[in-house]
Design a binder for these strands. Structure first.
Lengths: 204, 204
DNA sequence: AAAATAAGTGAATGTTCATTCATTTTTAAC
DNA sequence: GTTAAAAATGAATGAACATTCACTTATTTT
């Protein structure tokens, strides 16, 4: 074994990885998981099919890495201004508005993340998640319940009441239609009203 | 043209259609849309691949027909005991509990419907929907707002606050895990609490 | 500039895909 | 039991699929 073994090497091209993942996301959002083929992806990203396999073990690995990257970016953003020690109303508002602005500004990324949650790869991908963000939110909720700022409830009930309505509205917005097929555009006013309804539900 | 043209004919085998759709749903739920191939489906349903094309135009048509069948069955069930003329608290409770019991008892069907909503076929499938159910719910909401039993809000905000938390909880339940990867089993108590939180949010 | 090594490739591999077609089977009316 | 017509089929088709491999290119240390 040579001491220089890890020194003589050409650098990984991060731009290629970026391009591949961005194109893959676009293809999945536009045509579904069965619309993502490795040869079409290679062409769209301007590389050879073989190059994909330098950076990713296989197709599943590429999708899992993409999901991990998307969730990392998402969590980093929404926890930037959030502190579990905030009082409940402040913390909820910060957390909710961060999520809202991220998903509105990143409709494709959000669509991909939500779509991925229904795939059989989701289980495998969850194992790679950094638990620190979920832990922070859990601590925030536990503290709020202890302080009587939040009705006592399981964490999953809290999460579902607090955030599921937001993602549902954004899904309509991305489609441009509501559940009945009517045209729909999400407004700031609707977002603020939804937040206030959610707070009303959760506060004692 | 012969008068017997429409009399001499072999009957369509509804069992085959049932078997095909049931197996297709199972394959999509277990392996995703890219896990559904026509040859594997034919084998699973015990027919020849060519037989599928007697009943369905192509793969997309099969998926769209399946989605239509699932949503029809779902809406028929949840509107069975519901009447738009009910007062708000009663109507909401009936509607919510119907949805809850259907989705809990039909986890695979629900998973398929939710998954399908993120596919590019969803737009096409929505055009086939009978609008009568959505109309009933809209009338119910309009009347509740007029009667001051429900805060004034867009229909989409109402729907999202009212029902999105339920579907989110059921998604965790089906996976057996919450968003953080912890084991999760949905209980009746959680369902009832979620309903009461939602009612609190919506009532003036 | 030579040597070393990873990055990158185009063409090829064998497989699986959706779909079709020539043919046979089943059914129901006569 | 003959006839008509749809139902059903197995085998075949060509396209598209994920992945690999022998090879070339680029980069850095020596």
């Amino acid at each position: 074994m040579n001491i220089h073994l890890f020194c003589v090497m050409r650098v990984r091209d991060e731009n290629k990885i970026e391009a591949l993942l961005a194109e893959a996301r676009k293809m999945v959002v536009e045509e579904g998981f069965d619309g993502l083929s490795m040869q079409k992806l290679a062409k769209a990203a301007g590389v050879s099919p073989a190059t994909i396999y330098i950076y990713f073990k296989d197709r599943d690995d590429l999708l899992i890495q993409l999901y991990k990257r998307e969730t990392d970016r998402f969590f980093e953003y929404i926890f930037r201004d959030f502190d579990p020690e905030m009082d409940f109303a402040t913390g909820m508002t910060v957390q909710w508005k961060s999520r809202a602005s991220y998903v509105i500004e990143n409709l494709d990324n959000t669509h991909f993340m939500e779509h991925f949650k229904y795939s059989h790869l989701h289980q495998k991908a969850m194992a790679l998640r950094d638990p620190k963000y979920a832990e922070g939110l859990k601590r925030f909720v536990r503290k709020a319940i202890d302080n009587k700022e939040l009705v006592e409830m399981p964490f999953e009930v809290y999460w579902s009441v607090a955030f599921a309505p937001l993602y549902n509205l954004v899904h309509y917005h991305k489609a441009g239609r509501n559940m009945a097929g009517d045209p729909f555009v999400l407004t700031d006013e609707m977002l603020l009203q939804t937040l206030s309804l959610v707070l009303k539900a959760l506060k004692p």
